[in-house]
Amino acid sequence: MNVEDLIADINKYMEQLDFVTARKLIEENLNVLEKHRISLKSNARELLKFLIERNHSGYQPISRQDMATLIAINTYATNFDIRGLKLIIKDRAKLLLRTDILEYLNKDAKAILDGMGVINTELPNK
């Protein structure tokens, strides 16, 4: 896919409010789009800027499998299914150690997992 087609697709997806597809395209072509950012529309440029900042700060995007795990954790927490939660978090300790995961958990999951001692919802002192 050439750069012009890529930029046209990203702009089209942003206009259609399909941010997931636009974000995936931007993440896959980050280096190319940094050089051609002026061709993007303003909302796509803002998304590109956000993704570049997150990339430079060491943020790693969440995989589809990790996202499915987080959705399952949220569902079990909402239904207060502690047994299901324990089964899921048993093999996913590395995922739950990431600090950016808290953004994807609902209030029920944060409260239960914090009570279990799996995550720490307190903000670090700066």
Rank of each mutant, 00 (worst) to 15 (best):
R23P: 00
Q60K: 15
N55A: 08
I38W: 07
D114E: 14
I7T: 00
I62L: 12
A111I: 12
I82Y: 10
L40M: 02
K12L: 06
T78G: 05
L30F: 00
K24D: 04
I7V: 13
I38R: 04
Y59A: 09
V118N: 00
R23G: 09
N55W: 05
A93N: 12
A72I: 06
T75C: 09
I62Y: 07
I82Q: 01
D5R: 13
M67P: 05
S63K: 01
D66C: 04
I38V: 15
A44I: 04
A111Q: 10
K12N: 10
V3S: 14
I71E: 15
R54I: 04
S57A: 13
H36C: 06
I88M: 10
F80M: 10
F50A: 02
E34R: 15
M67Q: 13
N11R: 00
H56C: 02
A8L: 06
Y13W: 12
I89Q: 04
A44K: 01
H56F: 08
I82D: 11
I112L: 15
L48A: 13
R45A: 00
L123W: 14
Y13A: 02
L40N: 03
L85V: 05
H56D: 11
K12S: 03
L105K: 08
E122M: 05
L33R: 11
T75E: 15
E15T: 10
H36T: 11
L102H: 07
L25N: 10
D9V: 02
L85R: 04
S63T: 11
F19C: 00
L105R: 14
N120Q: 06
D114T: 09
P124Q: 11
S42G: 03
A68G: 10
I88V: 14
L85Q: 03
D108T: 03
F50L: 13
N106S: 03
I26L: 03
E103L: 03
H36R: 12
M1V: 11
G58D: 08
E27K: 09
I88Q: 01
E46K: 14
H56A: 11
I82N: 04
L96C: 08
Q60M: 13
E34D: 09
R83H: 11
Y13M: 05
E53K: 10
S39L: 15
E34L: 14
I52Q: 09
I101N: 08
K126C: 01
P61M: 00
T78K: 11
S57E: 10
K86C: 02
R23D: 00
Y59C: 00
T78F: 10
F19P: 03
L17M: 01
F80G: 03
H36S: 10
I89R: 01
Y76V: 00
D114I: 01
T75P: 00
L113N: 08
K12R: 07
G84I: 08
R92Y: 07
I73A: 10
R98Y: 03
L85G: 02
F80R: 14
T21S: 07
A8Y: 07
L70W: 08
D100C: 01
H36W: 08
N31M: 08
A68S: 14
T69K: 13
N125Q: 14
N106R: 08
V3T: 14
L40W: 08
L25V: 01
M14I: 14
K110M: 13
L87E: 15
S42Y: 08
G58A: 02
E46L: 04
N11G: 00
K41E: 15
L6Q: 12
Q65N: 14
N2T: 03
R54W: 00
K107R: 15
